[in-house]
Design a protein around this nucleic acid. Structure first.
Length: 571
DNA sequence: GCCGTTTTCGGCCCGACTGTTTTCAGTCG
């Protein structure tokens, strides 16, 4: 049974948690966390790297020890040091870290003084008044712990970016009711991460205390966690945490940079600053006591010898090196998109007609769309057989004749059957302008079989695009197991494109795979997979994801005009 | 535990807020 990179990362993170509770050297703890991050971010399975004899110490944050541990985990599926540590420190203590106000030190105290090992122990001791008697603990903290225990059950939820966007729009409109100089959402939301854990909002105003007073009166607040003079934290009724912070205008740029993160990017920038004898914090860039930059982000980057780096790239995944080498991408923008190559109509499981979709797309300023209804295997979606799809194409011909300003391409989202053959005859496929293929069932095949299934589909000379390549649904369905590198390699050889599916719960490919594809020279298409006219606007989410994957206009085929697109679609 | 064009030892990002204290530890981001 193969072990995945994220499973290895999880092992290191759990080990780090336990080390921290044990009271180990915090830098050692950090080393394990850094290693976990590295492991998560390399697109290639570590299992393969180990097999090929790759020198793991070349990876950032992996030294002699950790490379040995990785090998051990890949070979045995287990990390013996973690197993040993679990004998010493009960692993159930880790779950208590999720409670607001409880960190490693306090958990250690609770364990050593009161033998508290689980959430249930914790609740009992808090209610009995035992915890309050401990030095360093008081009634307020106990209250907080009890609240934390109650909340822990539903913790860990992250909001889809699109979902967070709705809350952001409402909250910003509320905040703007009073006079502000600057107002910006920072954090992972600004970096356009596919999910957002909380919101970080930065504001400046003549009288900031008034902003805080206004903020904590927002009607959708469930609880005000803290409200200081420069920052405040609240929980909304939907359990979304919002942090509002403020600085002086002269620090606005550095604060925006600081609160946008990512943490790893900021650390890397600070290290650069230290090398130059500078200090970077949220108030500016300082040489000694003197502030030399801070009003804008551009200033901050310039002061540490860098160019401006787009928020979507700030993950410390090579953007700093790329900037120094003058190789930062010029990221794709929504206005570069000229069409949408994946959508459904009433012929299968869509809600609108071909003509409705075409008109809506025309209003978006598109030059072309492809109608790509499902094939017959997908009976739940009323998939089309050869005869029906040819009828659909006749209708497309008629609409193309009478409609102006947009061209409708004939396409289909064809099921890849279990054996890798396609759910449509070659004779009919040959009549299509664009052929999407996709996996819609048998998600749990072994990695070898699933990969072979898709590679076989790529042998069909009519295939153009692999739709939602991993099938994952954010926080709902795991991706199918495939060897992405092999698939990208063959896509490159056969001139097949990968889809970046813009449905907010899919966003498939993810950012790491997109960058992998880009680096391997595989081009992609950003498609909405719309089932009605309203979701055509999902395109923005797909563009966000493409930007996180370093895509430029040229990497995305539906930025081409129709003539050039057609050339690309001819294999 | 990692890392190094000053270093193979001695560093490792930085500050706000809270609750508990009476100057600060712990937590959080």
């Amino acid at each position: 049974m193969a072990i995945t990179n994220s499973e290895i990362a999880k092992i290191f993170n759990e080990y780090a948690d336990l080390l921290e509770i044990k009271g180990e050297n915090p830098f050692k703890v950090r080393a394990y966390r850094n290693a976990a991050r590295t492991v998560e971010n390399i697109g290639k399975p570590l299992e393969e790297l180990v097999e090929s004899g790759y020198d793991l110490t070349k990876l950032p944050g992996i030294g002699t020890d950790l490379s040995l541990y990785i090998k051990e985990i890949v070979k045995t599926g287990k990390f013996s040091k973690l197993e040993q540590l679990k004998e010493e420190i009960p692993p159930t203590l880790v779950e208590m870290l999720s409670i607001e106000g409880l960190g490693p030190k306090r958990i250690k105290t609770l364990y050593e003084q009161l033998h508290i090992q689980s959430m249930e122990d914790l609740r009992r001791a808090a209610e009995s008044g035992e915890i309050e008697k401990l030095p360093g603990f008081g009634p307020t903290l106990v209250e907080k712990i009890l609240r934390g225990v109650r909340l822990a059950k539903k913790a860990g939820h992250r909001f889809k970016w699109s979902e967070a966007k709705e809350y952001v729009d409402d909250l910003l409109a509320y905040l703007r009711q009073i006079e502000l100089t600057h107002l910006e959402v920072a954090g992972s939301f600004r970096r356009k991460k596919e999910t957002v854990g909380d919101l970080d909002i930065l504001a400046t105003a003549k009288d900031f205390s008034e902003v805080i007073r206004h903020f904590v009166k927002y009607p959708k607040i469930k609880e005000v966690v803290s409200a200081g003079s420069t920052r405040s934290t609240v929980i909304l009724q939907n359990d979304l945490q919002v942090d509002l912070r403020s600085v002086e205008d002269e620090s606005y740029g550095s604060a925006l940079h600081y609160f946008t993160g990512s943490k790893q990017h900021n650390i890397a920038v600070r290290k650069l600053a230290i090398e130059l004898g500078l200090k970077v914090n949220e108030y500016g860039v300082f040489r000694g006591e003197q502030r030399i930059a801070g009003r804008t982000e551009e200033e901050v980057y310039k002061a540490v010898g860098l160019c401006y780096i787009e928020p979507e790239l700030r993950e410390n995944r090579g953007e700093i090196e790329a900037c120094k080498a003058g190789k930062l991408p010029k990221l794709i923008e929504q206005k570069d998109i000229r069409g949408d190559l994946h959508m459904h109509t009433v012929y299968s499981d869509g809600k609108h007609t071909i003509e409705d979709m075409a008109k809506a797309a025309k209003e978006m300023g598109y030059e072309y769309i492809a109608i790509t209804d499902h094939s017959k295997r997908l009976t739940v979606a009323k998939g089309l057989d050869e005869k029906r799809v040819l009828q659909e194409f006749e209708e497309i011909d008629k609409i193309n004749e009478k409609i102006n300003g947009i061209t409708i391409l004939k396409g289909m989202e064809v099921d890849i059957l279990e054996d890798g053959s396609l759910d449509m005859s070659n004779e009919v496929l040959a009549q299509m302008d664009v052929v999407l293929v996709a996996v819609h069932y048998k998600f749990n095949l072994s990695k070898e079989k699933q990969t072979a299934r898709i590679l076989k589909a790529f042998d069909n000379p009519h295939v153009n695009i692999l739709a939602h390549p991993t099938g994952r649904m954010i926080q709902m369905r795991e991706p199918i197991e495939i060897d992405m590198e092999k698939i990208l390699q063959k896509a490159k050889e056969n001139n097949i494109f990968m889809e970046i599916n813009a449905q907010p719960e899919r966003l498939d490919l993810n950012d790491i795979h997109i960058k992998m594809a880009k680096d391997m020279g595989v081009k992609m298409a950003i498609n909405t997979d719309s089932h009605n006219i309203f979701s055509l606007y999902y395109m923005q989410y797909g563009v966000n994801q493409a930007r996180r994957g370093w895509c430029e206009k040229d990497d995305i085929i539906n930025t081409r005009d129709l003539k050039n697109l057609k050339k690309l679609l001819k294999r």
